[in-house]
Computed example of a mutant assay.
Amino acid sequence: MNAQEWYLFDLQGYLVLENVLTAAQLDALNAELDRQIAAVSAPVNAPVNAPVNAPDRTWFRWDGLLPWGPPFQALIDLPPLMPYLKILLGEGFRLDHDYTHVIRQGSGPIGTRLHGGGTPYDPCQYYHVHNGRMYNGLTAVAYELRDVRPGEGGFACIPGSHKSNAPFPDEWRDLENPPACMQPVAVSAGSAILFTEALTHGTLPWRGQGERRTLFYKYSPRSNAWARSLYNPDEFPSLTEAQRRLLLSPGVYPY
């Protein structure tokens, strides 16, 4: 993280990191998502006897992507992201949980409500700076597998809200009618949005022609846990030792 990026993250609460995934990685990740979508047998908002992949299935969500194999396991410690996460979370940070959203139309699994913010203080999702060092709670990496063009929807936030000293006005939370201070973030396929969960953020209704495909890998400082469920590194024997350390349960010692 260079000085300009440090400044922008402190100012905004997020960074866009371009081209962190290769074309080969995008192909492999999208191919597996294609397989998972095709295997779904109970479309949401569709009749019980509707065919698989019915057109009125507007979104998909899967939690826990590591069993899907090496392309997803490689994102545990993707090299372009590791230096940033070390600065944001300190030594020994851990992967807290992961999931994916595929949104075809309208609102996705979490709806269109803005959430998060610097106030009230959340001991699992926070941001502050002390003696020139950043301290973050839960921190997200959102990998976009398809282009998100201006006006199509997707990730949006209130820049700077991770440092707000006042609660976010509840009447501004509905992204169907977003406030003027909200900023949408358009990114190209293969890019990542890196943000603190203390940032007020959400998902605009999807209006793109294709699908919005986003992988979320969320990290915590080594002593914290946001998710109740924990990883068992022994379930994934092909992981490297560095990847296994990132799946450790929360704690300070031993490290």
Results as ranks from 00 to 15, higher is better:
M1Q: 00
N2F: 00
Q4M: 11
W6M: 08
D10I: 08
Q12K: 14
G13W: 04
G13R: 02
L15R: 03
N19E: 14
V20G: 05
Q25K: 02
L26K: 00
D27Y: 11
N30Q: 07
A31M: 04
E32F: 06
R35Y: 09
Q36I: 10
Q36S: 08
I37K: 12
A39P: 10
A39L: 11
A42V: 13
P43K: 12
V44A: 11
V48R: 15
V48K: 14
V48I: 11
V48W: 13
P51F: 01
P51T: 05
V52F: 13
N53F: 14
A54L: 09
D56I: 09
R57H: 14
P67N: 11
W68V: 06
G69V: 05
G69P: 01
A74S: 11
A74F: 00
L75R: 07
I76K: 05
I76A: 04
P79A: 05
P83I: 02
L85S: 00
L85T: 01
L85H: 00
K86S: 09
K86P: 00
I87R: 07
I87D: 08
I87H: 03
E91Y: 09
F93Y: 15
T100I: 15
V102K: 04
I103V: 15
R104L: 08
Q105D: 13
G106Y: 06
G106F: 06
S107I: 12
G108I: 08
I110G: 11
I110N: 13
G111E: 02
R113Y: 12
G118Y: 03
G118Q: 07
D122S: 11
D122V: 07
Y126Q: 06
Y127R: 07
H130C: 14
T139N: 03
A140I: 02
A142T: 07
A142M: 10
E144L: 12
R146W: 05
R149W: 06
G153K: 07
G153D: 09
G154Q: 07
G154R: 03
A156C: 15
S161Y: 02
K163A: 15
S164W: 09
N165W: 11
A166H: 13
P167M: 10
P167N: 08
L175Q: 09
A186C: 04
V187S: 01
S188M: 12
G190D: 06
G190M: 01
F195A: 09
A198C: 06
L199G: 05
L199M: 10
H201S: 02
G202E: 04
W206Q: 04
W206Y: 09
W206T: 06
R207Q: 15
R207W: 08
G208Q: 07
E211A: 14
R212I: 04
K218Y: 13
S220I: 06
P221T: 06
S223P: 08
A227F: 10
A227E: 11
S229W: 15
L230W: 13
L230N: 11
P233K: 05
P233C: 07
D234N: 13
D234R: 11
P237K: 01
S238R: 14
S238F: 04
S238C: 07
T240R: 02
E241I: 05
A242M: 05
L247H: 00
S249V: 12
P254K: 08
P254V: 05
